[in-house]
Write a protein that binds this DNA or RNA. Structure first.
Lengths: 245, 245
DNA sequence: CGTTATCTTGACCGTCGTCAAACAGGGTGG
DNA sequence: CCACCCTGTTTGACGACGGTCAAGATAACG
């Protein structure tokens, strides 16, 4: 009980959300070599075009992945919470196709690609867990395509807020009442395919309807069910129930 | 030379786009048990909520994956060309989070999930190839998020047309001059997050500028470079160069 | 041929973007 | 402690891109 928790424990928890690991698997993951670093907000962890030889795991704080158009418009394509791998895709893809950035100050563990690859080669359960994690990420991408392509600003924002709430909850990071949204309205717009101005109006509209509460960046949910309904939110795409062995 | 080509040969070709397979791997893939079926246009292959025990591969014709909002709006989240796996994610995810539908009349091979899983377990190169294929799909999802979230209708459509051209080319399915776009403007709208009416206006606008040629659904590219520029298209996200061993 | 899906066009409307300015908060340095 | 600045939030006026509705034209198909 008094054991010091490994920094990688949260990553193990994340992988076990969707896959079954045994004690040997857990120990092997925790025994991975890693380097700890702290990054300031908005630091780049990976840049498009890079060929990283390390894989990054987010231990604390928040991060996102992002792409830019030639005209310089930004689109955030995913948001990451503590425990989540940030670029395990570089286990198998050599060149980064997008940027990875911290949102807040964040602690990052980097694991040598070679060590992780070898572990995946030797332990089928770990290989499966990483694969399933990738597949669930893919499912989230699809839901974002639907969200951005086919829902209006109010539903779109509501959906985003619901997803974030559920994912925090899954990782055991839930606050008593709602959560602190770790991003500016500009960044929110970049995640939703909207402008910062319209995000502002949309947030205030949800607030005016009593669907969310706000105190600075803290969001609370006085009418969770109504918000979820507006968001057209179903958690199926997060594959919560699944535990592949 | 006179050997009859296995229906799965095109799938092997697809997997070898991004991964290195040896003769044993190829033979093992071609020896997989499968069932051949032909489907009419718009047939459902997988429905959201299903728990398929087969994995589908597209042998001829075209297919897409799609999600619906509660209000009934459709969003196509990916388009598939011959040789591509349609739902290898069900190797590791039990419940489908989206629908898979044929676009045209299509030949489909279904492979028992168990057989494919076992093959992946025994042959690291095949497991890697499937994983890399999944990762490249993920990269395409991200680019679609960017495309729908941050590009206007003209660029968005142009980008879609460029992607389709390059992917057909990669799979060796290029016609002499352009290609037959296998979808209605309604479906095009569902893929781009636009309405059919606006797709129509946008296509005609590209045509009027000489950026594409049209003859019914056949699209040609009299000014490929200019179209590519308008589309802000870079093929990096398709990971063409990559061949992970 | 008739029937139906798809494409095309016009008129009109609304959501969201643009531009700009005011305002609030948090940190820094004098 | 206060002036200053910087970033982020809020608000208003206006415009435009794309949506809606509806009708007519064209092409596919039995």
């Amino acid at each position: 009980m008094a054991t010091t928790l490994s920094p990688l424990a949260l990553m193990v928890r994340k992988l076990e959300t969707h896959a079954v690991l045994d004690d040997g698997d857990r120990k092997a993951l925790l025994a991975l070599p890693y380097t700890l670093r702290t990054f300031e907000p908005s630091s780049y962890l990976v840049r498009e075009g890079d060929a990283p030889d390390q894989c990054a795991v987010l231990l604390s704080g928040f991060a996102y992945r992002q792409k830019l158009t030639g005209a310089g418009m930004r689109q955030i394509v995913s948001l990451h919470i503590p425990g989540e791998p940030l670029d395990f895709q570089h286990l198998f893809l050599d060149v980064a196709d997008h940027n990875v950035q911290t949102l807040t100050r964040a602690e990052i563990a980097t694991i040598p690609r070679s060590a992780l690859r070898e572990l995946a080669r030797n332990r089928a359960a770990i290989s499966n867990a990483i694969f399933v994690n990738t597949l669930v990420e893919g499912s989230i991408f699809r839901e974002w395509i639907l969200n951005i392509g086919r829902r209006d600003a109010r539903s779109r924002l509501a959906h985003f807020l619901c997803e974030f709430a559920i994912r925090l909850d899954m990782q055991g990071l839930t606050g008593a009442d709602g959560y602190e949204l770790p991003m500016s309205q500009e960044q929110l717009g970049d995640a939703l395919g909207l402008t910062a101005v319209h995000v502002n109006r949309t947030i205030k509209s949800l607030e005016a309807d009593g669907l969310i509460g706000r105190n600075r960046r803290r969001i609370s949910f006085p009418q969770w069910d109504a918000l979820r309904e507006l968001a057209d939110f179903s958690s199926r795409y997060l594959h919560l129930a699944q535990q592949t062995s």
